[in-house]
Design a protein around this nucleic acid. Structure first.
Length: 553
RNA sequence: GUGCCCAUAGCUCAAUUGGAUAGAGCUUCUGACUUCGGAUCAGAAGGUUGCAGGUUCAAGUCCUGCUGGGCACACCA
């Protein structure tokens, strides 16, 4: 009896397909959904309505015929009912839940992992902030979303590479080097201001000081050096900061991809440029070289080589994406900030022009974050250097709240992040609601251990779990692996938050209605097994989101 | 002006990707343990899904046109 949600759905789906084929349905995919309303059963099939047109019969009649031909073992399917306008609602044999709980308990930390996404390889690029300053709150949001997606996909058996693209070349890099040089000069007593459009904040002063205190240990080439080398040194420092902040946040990248080293120094940028020219995708105008992106869906052409002879940023970007395409992944996914979404069409156009299938390249936009403090908008100005960094935010609200809040909403919508609410340890703060459920169960388990009560672990002992509140929890435990797969595939980690909130709420309801410690022993031990299952799922799911599951709060 | 994103309860957001009576949390009000963590639970209130059309068995979801908000439209990256 080694069923899980996936094998059950498959059994049902195949049986329906067979039944429908007898009616001449031809080739139809049969989807088995979970109904929105619990009272409709465990699963439902809209098949009859889908077939109505093809068979030219009313859906209700089709549903009846399908049921007559349907052959599913009663040990799996307890009941099938037709509901207007043509849904077929299915109720599983509750005995199955016992087996599923037994499996969930024995799989423990591995429960929720599946092989549904096996065989697929995804390259996920996210954060990729310029190494010219601190990470900001949108970077923090992208980081939380990206890492959670990667966790969800890995748990579904998909192979995921987390990559961070370091933009350490080009004009910004030059400005950064010159700004750093100016800052160092100032500390040495030589008045010098940062270049137009350069970088100023306090962190530049810190960098300059660090440089001066370390210079004795640095190779001669870095003493009295050009702004270019200075910039390279400085950017490596900033990248190091980024790594540290992200690590505090629980995020480890598999690959830090340096634009300067791996694209420019390696000659790949020059090679890409040649390639584009050879394919006839470029033309010259006004002393510059352009790429014909507008022929492939972008609203304008882009400059590849500026009239000063230097390659524009987009060459490196195209080179980078080509390189990604060549690395053997089925899908290349990129999470971008809201300020770059104008760039998406150009990149898609470049992919098309070079003949890559458009669906292989996917871009998600992590929308802007409005920071609030007690309902008041926190004013931020980049020019005045007045913006909250990711580091400061983490300091203020902690890792758990930060990661939870950032994945709580769909990436595509703007996010209101109230720092005050995130710090509160009250019912206003949703992360505590879920963590509390976990801690409450842990406390129960401790109490039971004192009394010598241990949870059952075999399906045949779970019969007492037959109240509506228990059955609901059993069902949610069963559905968990499916939520992992679905939210990963859709790149929507916020669905896991929705799931967790429901699970926690249903646990609290169960807890308030049913006693555990003072129930008869067989009931108590069965209920203990149930809440242990809930606890494991909460812990595993929070883990995928990078949020801890404390045993005491 | 052009393109992309957003618009759902007083507020912040969901809605299984086209499914059944649009759901949660917060806020407000009313109730619930001499007992396993009250950081909890139950109940009430709250809606013409921005507006107008269209597509079909079925539209918050898809297509068209408006309205309002955000972002982007450099030989910056």
């Amino acid at each position: 009896m080694n069923y899980d949600i996936f094998s059950l759905q498959k059994i049902l789906s195949e049986a329906f397909q067979k039944s429908a084929e007898k009616m001449g349905s031809g080739d139809t995919t049969v989807s088995i959904e979970k109904p929105k309303d619990k009272s409709h059963g465990d699963f439902s099939a809209p098949l009859a309505m889908v077939l109505a047109k093809k068979l030219k019969k009313p859906p209700l009649n089709i549903a009846q015929e399908i049921l007559q031909n349907l052959n599913i073992d009663p040990s799996i399917l307890l009941k099938a009912e037709i509901a207007a306008p043509g849904f077929i609602n299915l109720r599983l044999n509750p005995a199955l839940f016992g087996f599923i709980l037994q499996n969930a308990l024995s799989q423990d930390v591995n429960y929720g992992k599946s092989t549904q996404g096996k065989g697929e390889k995804i390259l996920l690029e996210f954060v990729s902030a310029n190494p010219t300053g601190p990470l900001n709150v949108v970077n923090a949001r992208a980081a939380a979303i990206g890492d959670s997606i990667a966790n969800l996909l890995s748990a579904s058996g998909t192979e995921v590479l987390r990559e961070y693209y370091v933009n350490d070349a080009g004009n910004q890099a030059r400005l950064f080097g010159e700004s750093l040089e100016a800052a160092i000069s100032r500390i040495r007593g030589v008045p010098k201001s940062a270049p137009e459009g350069g970088y100023q904040g306090a962190y530049m002063e810190d960098l300059a000081k660090t440089y001066l205190t370390q210079k004795d240990d640095l190779p001669d080439s870095h003493f009295n050096v050009t702004s270019k080398l200075l910039g390279e040194w400085g950017m490596d420092q900033v990248v190091q900061w980024h790594k540290e902040v992200l690590e505090k946040y629980g995020i480890l990248f598999d690959k830090w991809f340096s634009e300067r080293r791996e694209l420019h120094d390696s000659g790949l940028v020059a090679q890409t440029l040649e390639d584009l020219k050879r394919r006839g995708l470029t033309y010259d105008k006004d002393g510059a070289t352009w790429i014909k992106t507008s022929e492939h869906g972008a609203h304008k052409d882009e400059v590849l080589v500026k009239s000063n002879g230097l390659p524009a940023y987009i060459v490196a970007d195209i080179a980078y994406h080509l390189h990604k395409m060549d690395r053997g992944y089925d899908k290349v996914v990129n999470i971008m900030g809201p300020d770059h979404h104008g760039h998406i069409l150009s990149m898609k156009a470049a992919h098309l022009a070079l003949g890559f299938p458009p669906e292989k390249f996917e871009v998600l936009v992590a929308q802007q974050v409005n920071l609030l403090e007690g309902g008041e908008k926190v004013k931020m100005s980049k020019r005045e250097g007045k913006f909250v960094t990711m580091d400061e935010l983490l300091e203020k609200v902690g890792k758990d709240a930060a990661r939870f809040f950032f994945v709580m909403r769909s990436a595509n919508s703007h996010l209101d992040f109230d720092i005050e609410v995130a710090r509160k340890q009250t019912d206003e703060n949703p992360v505590f609601y879920i963590q509390y459920a976990h801690a409450r169960i842990c406390s129960l388990l401790r109490k039971c251990a004192e009394k010598g009560l241990t949870p059952f672990n075999r399906a045949e002992d779970f019969a007492p779990l037959n109240e509506p509140e228990s059955l609901l929890l059993l069902k949610e435990i069963m559905e968990y692996p499916q939520w992992v797969v679905d939210s990963g595939r859709a790149y929507e980690p916020h669905r896991m938050v929705v799931y967790l909130q429901n699970l926690a709420a249903d646990f609290h309801l169960f807890y308030s209605k049913h006693r555990i410690l003072d129930a008869p022993v067989e009931v108590a031990r069965a209920r203990l097994a149930l809440v242990l299952g809930v606890k494991n799922v909460i812990r595993n799911a929070l883990g995928l989101l990078g949020v801890s599951a404390p045993e005491q709060m």
